[in-house]
């Protein structure tokens, strides 16, 4: 289990990294934390011709508050840094809680926030989290940049809108609205293992406890993170009842997810989990909403 040979580039600035990616085109692959890519390379399931290692690009490691009460996270910020950052915990308490569920401490010490997004593993937490929090991504290439909403970023399993010469540079989390509450529910065979089904729920209520917004994002049960269309339809404008939540859970599990049968669970079981987890998640999120 030794990786195949590759060319190695270790730029020290974003400019240099973008120039390298531009030159390499389809041959180039960004190396961020490497906690998914390097195992795949060891199995020789991934054999990039060239790696552009961002670990020496110091300007990509940061967590900055934005003036509107949100956060800007540099793409190379390690998961463990996000997990332990007091500002993150203060502004987005759901974030460290979700991040804690990523694999094990040693992986989080190396894995990066942006890397997980760009990798777009349908079973990964951070892509779903970014959709649930309505994140925006700064995508850069040599001589240009664009902003992409998280919702529009993921195209399929391990596929995103990123072009070969592009790089995800920054993740911006808009502030949590007043009256919001969030919950994370996951079932996996083991702690740190891939979720068999998982849901991140972010809801907003007004002062009369009426639901203003409900972002319910499922993952590990389809090809990309799935933002439920049903949840806001049924919930927004009403005070959420147990019946309404159950209805959302039922509908999502029947209509919006597409889990497959794999060695650890049948599609039927995983669909059932979606129903249970959505119900538990929304109930918890509304309880927390304030």
């Amino acid at each position: 289990m030794k990786p195949a040979p590759f060319e190695y580039y270790a730029p020290t600035s974003v400019e240099e990294a973008l120039a390298t990616l531009q030159t390499l085109g389809y041959d180039g692959k960004v190396l961020a934390g490497g906690q998914s890519l390097i195992p795949a390379m060891n199995f020789r399931m991934a054999r990039p011709a060239a790696l552009v290692d961002l670990n020496k690009v110091n300007e990509l490691f940061y967590i900055k508050p934005t003036s509107d009460g949100g956060l800007a996270i540099g793409t190379m910020t390690r998961d463990s840094v996000v997990e332990k950052d007091p500002l993150v915990a203060e502004r987005f308490p759901i974030v460290p809680y979700v991040v804690k569920h990523i694999a094990h401490p040693q992986i989080r010490n190396r894995g990066t926030f942006g890397g997980a997004i760009a990798h777009a593993d349908p079973a990964a937490q951070i892509p779903a989290l970014s959709v649930a929090l309505n994140a925006r991504f700064l995508v850069r290439k040599q001589g240009g940049e664009r902003w992409v909403n998280a919702e529009d970023f993921f195209m399929g399993p391990f596929m995103t809108v990123l072009e070969p010469e592009e790089m995800l540079a920054e993740v911006v989390l808009p502030p949590m609205a007043k009256g919001s509450g969030a919950s994370y529910q996951q079932v996996s065979r083991q702690k740190g293992g891939y979720a068999q089904a998982a849901v991140i729920s972010v809801v907003v209520v007004d002062e009369n406890k009426r639901c203003k917004d409900a972002r319910v994002v499922l993952f590990s049960v389809g090809e990309t993170p799935i933002l439920s269309q049903t949840a806001p339809k049924i919930l927004v404008g009403n005070v959420p009842t147990a019946e309404a939540i159950a209805e959302v859970a039922e509908k999502i599990s029947k209509e919006e997810v597409d889990p497959g049968t794999d060695i650890h669970g049948t599609a039927e079981y995983r669909r059932h989990l979606v129903k249970v987890l959505v119900r538990r998640g929304l109930t918890e999120a509304f309880e927390r909403a304030k």
């Binding site: 906690q35 390097i38 992986i107």
Partner: peptide, 14 residues
Amino acid sequence: EAVRSCTIFAVQAD
């Protein structure tokens, strides 16, 4: 920081 040395390249330890 504890990391797994099988999923890091030696060049990255530079």
